[in-house]
Design a protein around this nucleic acid. Structure first.
Lengths: 133, 133
DNA sequence: CTAATCCATAGCTTTATAATAGGATTGTGA
DNA sequence: TCACAATCCTATTATAAAGCTATGGATTAG
Protein backbone atom coordinates (compact mmCIF):
# COMPACT_ATOMS: atom_id res chain seq x y z
CA UNK A 1 0.00 0.00 0.00
CA UNK A 2 2.69 2.38 -1.00
CA UNK A 3 4.62 2.53 2.14
CA UNK A 4 7.94 1.30 3.26
CA UNK A 5 7.26 -2.16 4.58
CA UNK A 6 7.93 -3.39 8.06
CA UNK A 7 11.09 -5.13 6.94
CA UNK A 8 12.71 -1.80 6.18
CA UNK A 9 11.17 0.11 9.05
CA UNK A 10 12.06 -2.51 11.65
CA UNK A 11 15.57 -2.84 10.30
CA UNK A 12 16.16 0.89 10.55
CA UNK A 13 14.84 1.01 14.08
CA UNK A 14 17.01 -1.93 15.03
CA UNK A 15 20.25 -0.50 13.71
CA UNK A 16 19.43 2.83 15.32
CA UNK A 17 19.42 1.03 18.64
CA UNK A 18 22.87 -0.32 17.89
CA UNK A 19 23.95 3.17 16.87
CA UNK A 20 23.11 4.56 20.28
CA UNK A 21 24.69 1.77 22.33
CA UNK A 22 28.07 1.29 20.78
CA UNK A 23 30.09 0.16 23.82
CA UNK A 24 29.09 -3.52 23.77
CA UNK A 25 27.09 -6.01 21.70
CA UNK A 26 23.32 -5.77 22.02
CA UNK A 27 21.33 -8.97 21.96
CA UNK A 28 18.28 -9.45 19.81
CA UNK A 29 16.28 -9.98 22.94
CA UNK A 30 17.18 -6.53 24.20
CA UNK A 31 16.27 -4.92 20.90
CA UNK A 32 13.06 -6.89 20.87
CA UNK A 33 12.09 -5.52 24.27
CA UNK A 34 13.27 -2.01 23.53
CA UNK A 35 11.42 -1.73 20.24
CA UNK A 36 8.62 -4.17 20.92
CA UNK A 37 9.40 -6.31 17.90
CA UNK A 38 9.28 -10.09 17.50
CA UNK A 39 12.53 -11.88 18.32
CA UNK A 40 12.11 -14.28 15.44
CA UNK A 41 11.46 -11.55 12.96
CA UNK A 42 14.47 -9.59 14.14
CA UNK A 43 16.61 -12.69 13.76
CA UNK A 44 15.82 -12.82 10.08
CA UNK A 45 16.60 -9.17 9.63
CA UNK A 46 19.94 -9.38 11.41
CA UNK A 47 20.88 -12.36 9.32
CA UNK A 48 20.62 -10.15 6.27
CA UNK A 49 22.24 -7.16 7.91
CA UNK A 50 25.19 -9.28 8.87
CA UNK A 51 25.57 -10.82 5.44
CA UNK A 52 25.53 -7.33 3.99
CA UNK A 53 28.39 -6.42 6.30
CA UNK A 54 26.54 -3.72 8.20
CA UNK A 55 26.68 -5.41 11.58
CA UNK A 56 28.92 -7.93 13.23
CA UNK A 57 27.93 -10.57 15.71
CA UNK A 58 29.26 -12.16 18.84
CA UNK A 59 27.93 -15.62 19.51
CA UNK A 60 27.32 -17.35 22.77
CA UNK A 61 26.43 -15.92 26.12
CA UNK A 62 26.55 -12.15 26.42
CA UNK A 63 26.72 -12.09 22.67
CA UNK A 64 24.80 -9.86 20.34
CA UNK A 65 25.28 -7.44 17.50
CA UNK A 66 27.17 -4.23 16.93
CA UNK A 67 27.63 -1.88 14.00
CA UNK A 68 30.46 -2.80 11.66
CA UNK A 69 31.08 0.87 10.86
CA UNK A 70 30.43 4.17 12.62
CA UNK A 71 26.85 5.44 12.26
CA UNK A 72 27.80 8.23 9.91
CA UNK A 73 29.19 5.65 7.50
CA UNK A 74 25.95 3.71 7.27
CA UNK A 75 23.21 5.17 5.11
CA UNK A 76 19.54 4.35 5.04
CA UNK A 77 20.20 3.04 1.56
CA UNK A 78 22.71 0.55 2.95
CA UNK A 79 20.14 -0.78 5.37
CA UNK A 80 17.41 -0.95 2.77
CA UNK A 81 19.61 -2.72 0.27
CA UNK A 82 20.62 -5.21 2.93
CA UNK A 83 17.15 -6.35 3.87
CA UNK A 84 15.60 -5.88 0.46
CA UNK A 85 18.00 -6.24 -2.45
CA UNK A 86 15.71 -4.66 -5.02
CA UNK A 87 15.55 -1.52 -2.95
CA UNK A 88 12.71 0.93 -3.13
CA UNK A 89 11.58 1.62 -6.63
CA UNK A 90 8.75 3.91 -7.57
CA UNK A 91 7.43 1.69 -10.34
CA UNK A 92 8.33 -1.80 -11.50
CA UNK A 93 9.65 -0.39 -14.75
CA UNK A 94 12.37 1.54 -12.95
CA UNK A 95 13.66 -1.57 -11.28
CA UNK A 96 17.16 -2.39 -12.39
CA UNK A 97 16.65 -6.06 -13.11
CA UNK A 98 13.42 -5.61 -14.97
CA UNK A 99 13.25 -4.06 -18.38
CA UNK A 100 10.02 -2.31 -19.24
CA UNK A 101 8.75 -3.15 -22.69
CA UNK A 102 6.65 -0.02 -22.74
CA UNK A 103 9.42 2.30 -21.66
CA UNK A 104 9.91 3.95 -25.04
CA UNK A 105 6.32 5.04 -25.46
CA UNK A 106 5.25 5.24 -21.85
CA UNK A 107 4.44 8.81 -21.04
CA UNK A 108 4.69 8.17 -17.33
CA UNK A 109 8.11 6.60 -17.37
CA UNK A 110 10.07 9.77 -16.86
CA UNK A 111 8.05 10.65 -13.78
CA UNK A 112 9.01 7.42 -12.12
CA UNK A 113 12.64 7.80 -13.08
CA UNK A 114 12.74 11.23 -11.51
CA UNK A 115 11.09 9.89 -8.41
CA UNK A 116 13.47 7.01 -8.21
CA UNK A 117 16.44 9.37 -8.42
CA UNK A 118 14.94 11.52 -5.69
CA UNK A 119 14.52 8.54 -3.37
CA UNK A 120 17.94 7.11 -4.12
CA UNK A 121 19.49 10.44 -3.28
CA UNK A 122 17.58 10.74 -0.04
CA UNK A 123 18.49 7.27 1.12
CA UNK A 124 22.13 7.64 0.12
CA UNK A 125 22.60 10.98 1.84
CA UNK A 126 20.83 10.11 5.08
CA UNK A 127 22.95 8.21 7.55
CA UNK A 128 22.29 6.73 10.94
CA UNK A 129 24.00 9.78 12.39
CA UNK A 130 21.94 12.28 10.46
CA UNK A 131 19.38 12.81 13.16
CA UNK A 132 21.71 12.78 16.13
CA UNK A 133 23.51 16.16 15.87
CA UNK B 1 6.64 -4.25 -2.32
CA UNK B 2 7.48 -0.61 -1.86
CA UNK B 3 6.35 0.69 -5.12
CA UNK B 4 3.57 2.88 -6.30
CA UNK B 5 0.72 0.52 -6.94
CA UNK B 6 -1.02 -0.02 -10.24
CA UNK B 7 -3.94 2.13 -9.16
CA UNK B 8 -1.71 5.17 -9.11
CA UNK B 9 0.41 4.23 -12.08
CA UNK B 10 -2.54 3.40 -14.32
CA UNK B 11 -4.37 6.55 -13.28
CA UNK B 12 -1.38 8.70 -14.17
CA UNK B 13 -1.00 7.03 -17.53
CA UNK B 14 -4.68 7.45 -18.23
CA UNK B 15 -4.82 11.14 -17.47
CA UNK B 16 -1.66 11.67 -19.49
CA UNK B 17 -3.56 10.29 -22.46
CA UNK B 18 -6.28 12.84 -21.86
CA UNK B 19 -3.64 15.52 -21.55
CA UNK B 20 -2.34 14.85 -25.02
CA UNK B 21 -5.72 14.63 -26.74
CA UNK B 22 -7.60 17.64 -25.52
CA UNK B 23 -9.84 18.39 -28.50
CA UNK B 24 -12.60 15.87 -27.78
CA UNK B 25 -13.66 13.33 -25.14
CA UNK B 26 -11.71 10.08 -25.10
CA UNK B 27 -13.59 6.91 -24.36
CA UNK B 28 -12.36 4.39 -21.86
CA UNK B 29 -12.18 1.86 -24.64
CA UNK B 30 -9.69 3.99 -26.51
CA UNK B 31 -7.53 4.47 -23.44
CA UNK B 32 -7.76 0.78 -22.76
CA UNK B 33 -6.42 -0.02 -26.21
CA UNK B 34 -3.82 2.71 -26.18
CA UNK B 35 -2.41 1.76 -22.80
CA UNK B 36 -3.29 -1.91 -22.80
CA UNK B 37 -5.26 -1.71 -19.58
CA UNK B 38 -8.48 -3.45 -18.58
CA UNK B 39 -11.64 -1.51 -19.40
CA UNK B 40 -13.27 -2.45 -16.15
CA UNK B 41 -10.31 -1.42 -14.10
CA UNK B 42 -10.13 1.92 -15.88
CA UNK B 43 -13.81 2.50 -15.26
CA UNK B 44 -13.21 2.29 -11.55
CA UNK B 45 -10.33 4.71 -11.74
CA UNK B 46 -12.25 7.26 -13.78
CA UNK B 47 -15.12 7.08 -11.36
CA UNK B 48 -12.76 8.34 -8.67
CA UNK B 49 -11.06 10.85 -10.93
CA UNK B 50 -14.40 12.31 -11.84
CA UNK B 51 -15.59 12.54 -8.25
CA UNK B 52 -12.36 14.31 -7.40
CA UNK B 53 -13.13 16.85 -10.10
CA UNK B 54 -10.06 16.12 -12.20
CA UNK B 55 -11.95 14.94 -15.26
CA UNK B 56 -15.39 15.49 -16.70
CA UNK B 57 -17.46 13.00 -18.60
CA UNK B 58 -19.80 12.93 -21.55
CA UNK B 59 -22.28 10.12 -21.42
CA UNK B 60 -23.87 8.17 -24.20
CA UNK B 61 -22.61 7.35 -27.61
CA UNK B 62 -19.39 9.08 -28.64
CA UNK B 63 -18.98 10.05 -25.03
CA UNK B 64 -15.85 9.80 -22.95
CA UNK B 65 -13.67 11.80 -20.62
CA UNK B 66 -11.68 14.99 -20.78
CA UNK B 67 -9.56 16.94 -18.32
CA UNK B 68 -11.44 19.40 -16.15
CA UNK B 69 -8.43 21.74 -16.03
CA UNK B 70 -5.41 22.36 -18.21
CA UNK B 71 -2.57 19.84 -17.68
CA UNK B 72 -0.33 22.34 -15.92
CA UNK B 73 -3.02 22.79 -13.29
CA UNK B 74 -3.19 19.10 -12.41
CA UNK B 75 -0.42 17.70 -10.26
CA UNK B 76 0.58 14.12 -9.68
CA UNK B 77 -0.55 14.69 -6.12
CA UNK B 78 -4.04 15.53 -7.34
CA UNK B 79 -4.23 12.29 -9.24
CA UNK B 80 -2.85 10.24 -6.39
CA UNK B 81 -5.20 11.79 -3.87
CA UNK B 82 -8.11 11.11 -6.19
CA UNK B 83 -7.55 7.40 -6.57
CA UNK B 84 -6.10 6.80 -3.14
CA UNK B 85 -7.28 9.21 -0.46
CA UNK B 86 -4.58 8.35 2.03
CA UNK B 87 -1.94 9.29 -0.48
CA UNK B 88 1.55 7.92 -0.42
CA UNK B 89 3.03 7.78 3.00
CA UNK B 90 6.45 6.46 3.82
CA UNK B 91 5.45 4.81 7.07
CA UNK B 92 2.08 4.20 8.69
CA UNK B 93 3.01 6.51 11.53
CA UNK B 94 3.21 9.48 9.17
CA UNK B 95 -0.28 8.91 7.91
CA UNK B 96 -2.58 11.74 8.83
CA UNK B 97 -5.45 9.71 10.18
CA UNK B 98 -3.29 7.42 12.23
CA UNK B 99 -1.51 8.55 15.33
CA UNK B 100 1.64 6.68 16.21
CA UNK B 101 1.86 5.77 19.85
CA UNK B 102 5.61 5.35 19.62
CA UNK B 103 6.19 8.68 17.90
CA UNK B 104 7.74 10.40 20.91
CA UNK B 105 10.45 7.84 21.45
CA UNK B 106 10.77 6.42 17.98
CA UNK B 107 14.18 7.26 16.67
CA UNK B 108 13.17 6.51 13.11
CA UNK B 109 10.16 8.75 13.09
CA UNK B 110 11.98 11.84 11.85
CA UNK B 111 13.35 9.96 8.86
CA UNK B 112 9.89 9.08 7.70
CA UNK B 113 8.62 12.59 8.26
CA UNK B 114 11.43 13.97 6.13
CA UNK B 115 10.71 11.41 3.46
CA UNK B 116 7.04 12.17 3.51
CA UNK B 117 7.77 15.85 3.03
CA UNK B 118 10.07 15.06 0.15
CA UNK B 119 7.42 12.99 -1.59
CA UNK B 120 4.65 15.48 -0.94
CA UNK B 121 6.78 18.18 -2.47
CA UNK B 122 7.60 16.12 -5.53
CA UNK B 123 4.00 15.17 -6.17
CA UNK B 124 2.73 18.69 -5.62
CA UNK B 125 5.27 20.33 -7.90
CA UNK B 126 5.04 17.86 -10.76
CA UNK B 127 2.14 18.46 -13.09
CA UNK B 128 0.84 16.64 -16.13
CA UNK B 129 2.60 19.28 -18.22
CA UNK B 130 5.96 19.02 -16.47
CA UNK B 131 7.53 16.70 -18.99
CA UNK B 132 5.95 18.17 -22.08
CA UNK B 133 7.91 21.42 -22.63
C1' DC C 1 -34.98 1.39 -30.11
C1' DT C 2 -30.59 0.12 -29.92
C1' DA C 3 -25.83 0.43 -29.44
C1' DA C 4 -22.32 2.73 -27.05
C1' DT C 5 -20.92 4.64 -23.18
C1' DC C 6 -20.67 5.92 -18.31
C1' DC C 7 -21.97 4.53 -13.39
C1' DA C 8 -21.78 1.52 -9.33
C1' DT C 9 -21.05 -2.41 -6.41
C1' DA C 10 -19.75 -6.93 -5.26
C1' DG C 11 -16.75 -10.61 -5.26
C1' DC C 12 -12.96 -13.49 -6.73
C1' DT C 13 -7.81 -14.66 -7.41
C1' DT C 14 -3.30 -14.12 -6.66
C1' DT C 15 0.70 -12.40 -4.51
C1' DA C 16 3.68 -10.54 -1.14
C1' DT C 17 4.36 -9.40 3.45
C1' DA C 18 4.42 -10.55 8.15
C1' DA C 19 5.05 -13.66 11.53
C1' DT C 20 5.93 -18.22 13.61
C1' DA C 21 8.27 -22.80 14.38
C1' DG C 22 11.89 -25.70 15.30
C1' DG C 23 16.15 -26.89 15.48
C1' DA C 24 21.46 -26.49 14.92
C1' DT C 25 25.54 -24.19 16.30
C1' DT C 26 28.65 -21.60 19.16
C1' DG C 27 30.66 -19.49 23.10
C1' DT C 28 30.59 -18.46 28.45
C1' DG C 29 31.12 -19.37 32.93
C1' DA C 30 30.02 -21.99 37.11
C1' DT D 1 32.22 -30.57 31.44
C1' DC D 2 27.78 -29.30 31.43
C1' DA D 3 23.91 -26.06 31.37
C1' DC D 4 22.60 -22.06 29.41
C1' DA D 5 22.15 -18.18 26.51
C1' DA D 6 22.82 -16.44 22.61
C1' DT D 7 23.35 -16.45 17.40
C1' DC D 8 22.37 -18.93 13.11
C1' DC D 9 19.52 -21.00 9.48
C1' DT D 10 15.54 -22.95 6.87
C1' DA D 11 10.95 -23.84 6.27
C1' DT D 12 6.17 -23.12 6.85
C1' DT D 13 1.92 -20.81 7.78
C1' DA D 14 -1.31 -16.91 8.15
C1' DT D 15 -3.03 -12.61 6.80
C1' DA D 16 -3.80 -8.67 4.27
C1' DA D 17 -3.66 -6.21 0.24
C1' DA D 18 -3.51 -5.60 -4.52
C1' DG D 19 -5.20 -6.58 -8.81
C1' DC D 20 -8.67 -7.70 -11.52
C1' DT D 21 -13.34 -9.64 -13.15
C1' DA D 22 -18.26 -9.93 -13.24
C1' DT D 23 -22.70 -8.21 -13.25
C1' DG D 24 -26.21 -5.09 -13.81
C1' DG D 25 -28.07 -0.48 -14.29
C1' DA D 26 -28.47 4.43 -16.16
C1' DT D 27 -27.94 7.70 -19.82
C1' DT D 28 -27.60 9.56 -24.35
C1' DA D 29 -26.58 9.90 -29.53
C1' DG D 30 -28.04 8.45 -33.72
Amino acid sequence: MNRLNTTIRYAVRAVLVLASHRDNPISIKEISEHEDLSVKYLEQLFLKLRKAGLVKSVRGMYGGYFLARPPDKISLGDVIKAVQPNGVYAAPCTRKSKHCIREKNCSAHEYWEKLRALLDDFFASTTLATLKD
